[in-house]
């Protein structure tokens, strides 16, 4: 791993951290969507974020690859601070992959072309090499036989696995997942989660927004609970699920676990 030293002369935490959020604040117009967010994610750490609807989970992880910009505070990804500097944004995006709730595959391209597009255009990879890489990742998500179909011909679970493979083709060091299974029928959720568990086992740094608590218990190193634009609690899964410190966390867990 190439060790990039951060431009900021910050504390030691930032040196080993893959992602470092310091006092991040974000507003949509007058509405404050993130309040003083502090979070540090280490290389290879798996973080699961949960919280009620509208609490700012998506906003937070979308700030990490600058799909949204924050107005105050610092976000440092792999030693690169996210500012208006386009070079930095480019650099961060090439390190960070993202998987969306609604897949967002490119419907006018075959699966294989969805996968090879960015490596060829951004990484300037030759076509043959990009296709070999793509087939490798399609095998890892268990759907190599779908390579020459269009996304509209696949099931939801298959589409989401293609979306994961597409992100992986850029060989990111960090993966962000925003409710990757929420748009799926129950019978397809498992196939997507299995792929994510595999990824976690291989040591990928991951931040996953999800309400799949079974998944969280299996893979998470750290649980983050958000409510009303704030991080309310950060804890290991053991503590988080058995004796959370905050009563809002307890309330939330009671709600989703009793169903």
């Amino acid at each position: 791993m190439n060790e990039q030293t951060p431009d900021t002369n910050s504390n030691t935490a930032a040196d080993t951290a893959a992602i470092h959020l310091v006092d991040v604040n974000k507003w949509y117009g007058d509405f404050q969507a993130l309040i003083d967010i502090n979070l540090s994610v280490k290389q290879g750490e798996r973080v699961v974020v949960c919280g009620p609807s509208g609490s700012g989970k998506s906003t937070m992880i979308r700030c990490i690859n600058r799909l949204e910009h924050h107005q105050r505070g610092q976000i440092i990804v792999d030693g690169i601070e996210l500012t208006d500097n386009l070079k930095n944004i480019e650099a961060v995006r090439s390190e960070v992959g993202m998987v969306f709730q609604s897949f967002n595959l490119f419907p006018h391209m075959r699966v294989i072309d969805n996968l090879t597009l960015a490596p060829m255009l951004v990484r300037k990879m030759p076509k043959a090499e990009a296709e070999a890489l793509a087939m490798g990742y399609l095998e890892r998500v268990q759907i190599p036989e779908q390579a020459y179909k269009y996304p509209g011909q696949l099931s939801g679970g298959q589409q989401q696995r293609v979306a994961i493979a597409r992100s992986l083709c850029m060989q990111p060091r960090i993966m962000l997942f925003d409710e990757p299974t929420s748009a799926l029928d129950p019978e397809m959720i498992k196939e997507v989660l299995d792929v994510m568990v595999e990824l976690a086992k291989e040591g990928m740094t991951m931040i996953v927004v999800t309400h799949e608590m079974g998944f969280a218990k299996t893979v998470a190193d750290t649980m983050v609970f958000m409510d009303q634009a704030e991080i309310v609690e950060i804890a290991t899964p053991d503590i988080f699920f058995t004796k959370p410190k905050n009563e809002r966390t307890q309330l939330f867990l009671d709600q989703i676990l009793t169903h």
């Binding site: 009620p52 709730q101 609604s102 509209g152 939801g156 748009a183 799926l184 129950p186 608590m213 079974g214």
Partner: peptide, 27 residues
């Protein structure tokens, strides 16, 4: 496998829920 009350309400993503309806494999 618990997600009930926390399932995001449809208004959240613009194209989320609608997308799945069309993406069933065609028999």
């Amino acid at each position: 496998m618990a997600l009930p009350t926390e399932r995001p309400i449809p208004q959240a993503p613009p194209d989320g829920a609608a997308a799945t309806a069309d993406t069933k494999p065609r028999k």
